[in-house]
Amino acid sequence: MFQNIGEMMILSWRTLLLLPQTFRQRRKVFDQLFEIGNTSLLMTCILSLFIGGVIALQSGPVLSERGLSSYIGGLVGLSICKELAPVMMSVLIAGRIGSAMSAEIGSMRVYQEIDALRTMNIDPIQYLVLPRLVAISFALPLLVIFSILVGWLGGAIVSMINHQIAVPFQAYFSNLREMVEVNDVVNGLIKSLFFAVIIGVVSCHQGLKTIGGPRGIGRSVTKAVVNSIVMILILDYFLTAFLLYFDK
């Protein structure tokens, strides 16, 4: 485990040093951005709409019983932007994009494509890891913004149509505006940026160290997804504690 952590830190550092080369790799970055957006946007929309909806559905009647239904907008708004959108989107992207990254790089390793790059004096980190890491670091926060907006909308729809809650659109968003500050959304975006780096580094690292043919590729994909999710959830706690400290 410690060897893996060390290797990932070295990979992150080497990628960081290569950041000035991003412009040269811009075509690959755009390809990856398109790949991430294209495969994830619809899923993000559906997932976020229903997450927003289910929070409203669970908490709305409880708030109504205590005469606090007007706070539903703020409750859904804060839950979505501070916690659920960044974490759920990161888990989704780890499953969809992290797995694809580790499978693609793993397959290139197994079928000697990475060796071929090295014989041509092309750095696999610059050619493969840098564009993926840059793309996911842009794409995930963007998806989280989209997820937040759709999640809020999902909460608003359920709050309006559920007869136990029965909070109109205007009242929902008025309370949401009152309780949710820009800082809360920024906190969620900061989290998502860290999670994006974790997904990119873990997935590319697993891909680069793949051995043993198709079974090895499968193993790498599983490890990439599981390790990313575990690390996201652990880091989420510490990031939340850290950001709360600065919120005070």
Binding site: S107, M108, E113, D115
Partner: peptide
């Protein structure tokens, strides 16, 4: 400038 022709070809499939 060193080049290698791999037995499998090792072309980049993408």
């Amino acid at each position: 400038r060193v080049a290698m022709v791999f037995q499998s070809g090792a072309l980049l499939n993408s």
